[in-house]
Amino acid sequence: TFELKGKVGKVVKIAEDHYLVEVEGDKWIAYSDEKLSLGDRVMVVDVDGLKLKVKRIP
């Protein structure tokens, strides 16, 4: 999972307290300090167990 840091993915689902992002064909639970929208491109900035911390990228 640490090899996911720096990888780019996209938001595929928005849940009440987390996001579902697809990175390299796999779906992961993710969270972010900013509000994300469906389809946003994101970069993995940290890995916390099986959850990814992501940030939006242009």
Rank of each mutant, 00 (worst) to 15 (best):
T1K: 15
T1A: 15
F2C: 15
F2M: 15
E3T: 00
K5Y: 15
K5N: 14
K5D: 15
K5M: 15
G6N: 02
G6Y: 01
G6C: 03
K7W: 02
K7D: 02
K7I: 02
V8P: 10
G9H: 00
G9M: 02
K10Q: 11
K10G: 07
K10S: 08
K10I: 11
K10V: 12
K10A: 15
V11R: 00
V11K: 00
V11Y: 01
V12D: 13
V12S: 06
V12Q: 08
V12L: 07
K13V: 10
I14K: 11
I14R: 09
A15G: 13
A15Q: 11
E16P: 04
E16Q: 13
D17K: 09
D17V: 07
Y19R: 03
L20C: 06
L20D: 07
V21S: 03
V21D: 00
V21C: 05
E22G: 05
E22V: 06
E22Q: 13
V23R: 01
E24T: 03
E24Q: 03
E24F: 02
E24C: 12
E24M: 04
D26W: 14
D26G: 15
D26M: 12
W28E: 02
W28L: 03
W28N: 02
A30V: 03
A30L: 01
A30N: 01
Y31G: 14
Y31A: 14
S32C: 05
S32E: 04
S32K: 14
S32H: 13
D33F: 09
E34Y: 06
K35H: 07
K35A: 08
K35V: 10
L36I: 10
S37W: 08
S37C: 11
S37L: 13
G39V: 11
D40E: 10
R41P: 14
R41S: 14
V42L: 04
M43T: 12
M43C: 12
M43F: 04
V44T: 02
V44D: 00
V44I: 07
V44S: 01
V44L: 02
V45F: 07
V45W: 07
D46K: 02
V47Y: 05
D48Q: 05
D48C: 08
L50I: 09
L50R: 06
L50K: 06
L50M: 12
K51L: 14
K53E: 13
K53F: 15
K53C: 06
V54I: 05
V54H: 00
V54M: 03
V54A: 02
K55V: 14
K55A: 14
K55C: 14
R56P: 09
R56N: 11
R56H: 11
R56L: 11
I57T: 14
I57W: 07
I57E: 14
P58Y: 04
P58L: 05
